[in-house]
């Protein structure tokens, strides 16, 4: 009775949502949970993909080594990003600077600047055309599940996203470092007063979040089979929308909203022209901001 067409669209939507979620997790950790305005996450994602591709074309290692390589580059990139674009704005430790909104929001521009420099540098180094990933590394072999067709990558991405989500939830709620992250996010000055090493906490968060971003990048590269300097832009926007819809600070919220986003986009394609399906994401963003200013899953706390 039920048209298998809709089941297929639902499956495609879920898989699309998963790819958004993969990006949204690391993004939300830095931007939402740590509460630091960071617009360079898309480039970390691109760097991860390029690191993996370079490794593949240089030595053709097993896929696990490729992902480990991307993770290492992600960690390094996160550390450098924090050092270049964020640390300089924390050099004033007086109370006025620490409470200053302008100081906090200036990282919007510094991180954007880093992202532009990285993207253009990649364009100069690798050219802006799409580079193909060798076919034996691709994770898009079709898999038939009843009436719907998925690919192997969908299951890998599901597994990785679930592992990231559970791991981060454990880290944030059960460990001391998670406690420190939440404390710094809530009140950097207060965290400093009670003896938390805020610098180290922030660097750790950047490293962890960026490793996740880089892993997302290489997985997406293997999933779609194309790596190029501008690849981080669209997923970055989708992740941002998912994060805002999910209430900024909630990682599970961001994941659920990423799934909602994916499903609505694929379902919307049935009823409106595909050219309009991007409108769904922005439409959701606007509706959420009007009717749920704290996001669908956001805790009611005062944002800076």
């Amino acid at each position: 009775m039920f048209d298998p067409y809709y089941l297929q669209q639902l499956a495609i939507g879920l898989s699309l949502g998963m790819t958004y979620a993969l990006m949204a997790i690391g993004f939300t950790l830095i931007f939402g949970v740590l509460n630091v305005v960071n617009f360079a996450h898309g480039e970390i994602y691109t760097l991860g993909a390029f690191a993996g591709l370079v490794l593949i074309s240089a030595t053709a290692p097993p896929i696990v080594a490729v992902i480990l390589g991307a993770l290492a580059i992600g960690a390094l990139a996160g550390f450098s990003l924090e050092r270049i674009a964020f640390k300089p704005f924390r050099r004033f430790t007086d109370e006025a600077s620490l409470k200053s909104r302008a100081m906090r929001e200036s990282t919007l521009l510094s991180s954007l600047a880093v992202s532009i420099v990285v993207r253009e540098a990649l364009e100069i180094a690798f050219g802006s055309q799409m580079r193909s990933v060798p076919f034996e590394y691709l994770i898009n072999t079709p898999v038939r599940v009843g009436p719907v067709i998925l690919v192997t990558g969908d299951f890998i991405i599901f597994g990785v996203a679930a592992a990231m989500l559970i791991g981060l939830q454990y880290l944030l709620t059960r460990t001391r470092i998670g406690l420190a992250i939440r404390a710094v996010s809530n009140n950097p000055l207060g965290a400093k007063y009670v003896g938390i090493d805020t610098d180290r906490t922030i660097i750790t968060t950047f490293v962890v979040g960026s490793m996740m971003g880089a892993a997302a990048g290489i997985l997406m590269g293997l999933y779609y089979g194309a790596v190029f300097p501008a690849m981080g832009f669209t997923p970055g926007i989708k992740a941002f929308v998912a994060m805002v819809m999910g209430g900024l600070s909630s990682i599970p919220g961001a994941v659920i909203c990423a799934l909602i986003l994916g499903i609505s986009e694929s379902m919307a394609t049935t009823f409106v022209s595909s050219g309009w399906s991007d409108m769904v994401a922005y439409g959701f963003l606007i509706l959420t901001l009007i009717f749920f200013p704290n996001g669908l899953f956001g805790a009611r706390r005062e944002r800076v």
Binding site: E265, T269, S274, G275
Partner: peptide, 20 residues
């Protein structure tokens, strides 16, 4: 007959619709 946005990553929704 339909248009898609340049740079779209996932054509599977569009393809399923087209095949109908």
């Amino acid at each position: 007959s339909e248009f898609f946005n340049r740079g779209l990553k996932d054509y599977r929704s569009l393809i399923s619709k087209l095949e109908r």
